[in-house]
Design a protein around this nucleic acid. Sequence first.
DNA 1: ATGAAAGCGCTAACAC
DNA 2: GTGTTAGCGCTTTCAT
Lengths: 354, 354
Amino acid sequence: MGKKAVTSPQGDASTVRDVAARAGVSASTVSRVLGGTYPVAKATRAKVLKAMRELDYVVNAHARALGGSTNNTVAFVVDDVTGSFYAHIARGVEEQASAEGRLCMLCTTHNDPQRVLAVVETMREQRADAVIVVGGAWDDRAYQDRMTHFAHALDRAGSRLVLVGRPPLGPGVPATVIDYDNEGGAFAMTTHLLSAGHRRVAYLGRVPGLSTSSQRISGFTRAHEMLDIEPDPKLIIDGTFSRGSGYQGMHELLASGTEFSAVFAGTDMVAAGALQALREAGVRVPEDVALAGYDDIPTAIDVYPTLTTVHVPAEELGRAAVRLALHRDEFPESQHHVLGTHIVVRDSTRRHGR
Amino acid sequence: MGKKAVTSPQGDASTVRDVAARAGVSASTVSRVLGGTYPVAKATRAKVLKAMRELDYVVNAHARALGGSTNNTVAFVVDDVTGSFYAHIARGVEEQASAEGRLCMLCTTHNDPQRVLAVVETMREQRADAVIVVGGAWDDRAYQDRMTHFAHALDRAGSRLVLVGRPPLGPGVPATVIDYDNEGGAFAMTTHLLSAGHRRVAYLGRVPGLSTSSQRISGFTRAHEMLDIEPDPKLIIDGTFSRGSGYQGMHELLASGTEFSAVFAGTDMVAAGALQALREAGVRVPEDVALAGYDDIPTAIDVYPTLTTVHVPAEELGRAAVRLALHRDEFPESQHHVLGTHIVVRDSTRRHGR
DNA sequence: ATGAAAGCGCTAACAC
DNA sequence: GTGTTAGCGCTTTCAT
């Protein structure tokens, strides 16, 4: 085969200079019509535009980002886009970023703290305007320290670290935290269950060391305390935030013979797994046991019976994250924002006949 | 408030030169240890590394992309990450991109052809190594022409347009197409329904002008023809690929009084909506009517009864898209790839008592 | 209103 | 091995 001269990897994309030559003007003039922010004679502008069209010219975003101010990019770091909850946050992030003229980089970390760190570093290289990290906050001290370090580094570079659904890194750390009322949602749901007469409510899917989980447990506990009910430790089942874990945990709970009349699942996916286990065991929901979830993902209305759950404003969480990061000078004193949650009652907790 | 000197937007991020100065070497040497691809004296390397650490240095990806070959970015353009099907493709794309050392840009287009065009243009500015577009292909001629134009432009720039789940743009157009056997899946499912004895099968959710939909209809029709059954046009219901459309379409079909014993929904989400409508109408699935979907999203096992559907290898689709785009020289003659589909039989089509 | 020139941060030739 | 030099494509003073 005939060897071609080694072509540059960018191929033969045309540059401002090419356009300038064709239009018979200087590169600066081309740049000026590109920017649009500077006076250019009508005729000249037309010539330049024509040349651009003919050459099928597009600016090189990197060259622009290099010299210039910002690269107009927002980074979104998440465990896994496949989960509905995160997908909705992602949608919010993407939409708001797009509305603010920013592009959105997506990075997934597969539940690996190491990867979170690596990815945030990469985003620093990319000079992203904001780095939005959502989900999984570990109680690991070394990890927290590294995140704190990144917060400072990004801040120094004029960028911003945003933590979504995670606890703050500490006072004085330049990071924006946007959270939702995790504890309050769990409290409300537990109260809902308790005040329906349930006295033995199981909590299915506690994830040790995960802040989100701890907060939910804490709302669960507070509701019991308020009504002077002693929660049975045997009714708190460890697991993960997955369907499989819910299925297995429910199976084991049933097999253990421990008594209970309601189950509060750590997430809707956990609830979906639990529902399957209950069905297989011939336990009717809600007649025999009531079931509730957390997150209010779309699947909550597709399961049978439809699932009572805690609604979390996922999309708004994402939207707010980029809004706060990009306009942090407009929200000076508030570094920690909390959005509300509320319970949505559906069939899985409705008493038969009512 | 005290005015600060206008700081550069990048803040005071340190550069190779800063590192060089601190380590007492030249910028090129720093660059060499950065690249790691060139011999540097052990002691020098150590000094440089130390300086980098002390300065908390990170390379500027844009400067690198500008001079250099590639910017190591893959763009993923999709209607909406919120749908499970697309989310799984996204996961495949992200994972493969990450495995190949690429970053992933996410852009959503909200079912707007104009936005697809705009977004692809932006990706051209970003000099992405590959631009992966998934979903919604419109029969609009002008739109196709523009996409063809982009394919050429990207190709000229050393990049690549990849179409996932869409028909090819035409022979000679430098684009990679990765598709799945849409028609075959629909054919297999329809055959499954027909051979179970159903003679009046409704197709719920045809989307006029959408290639994916046309292909499914065509498999549906071919199955009927093969068994010498005349499909009733009244049983083909137009709509969109959404839950709401499935719900409404099913309602109307029921209200129309048209007879049928099985429903093949355009997607699993359409099936979920249909299921709700059937339940509200007191129609039992599968006893009174059988129901099937398409895509095999996770929700298919959470609905009740569990949903018979066509499995599409979504994640692999995403992975393959990246692989093919990045190594297109290794797959010279194959521009059009088709992954297989197969039906997954669950409870929604099982005859009672069998 | 337009052109010339400098420089953003980095890499790659080319010396030494 | 390491330093010097010259750009990558664009924006932005500073002249004119």
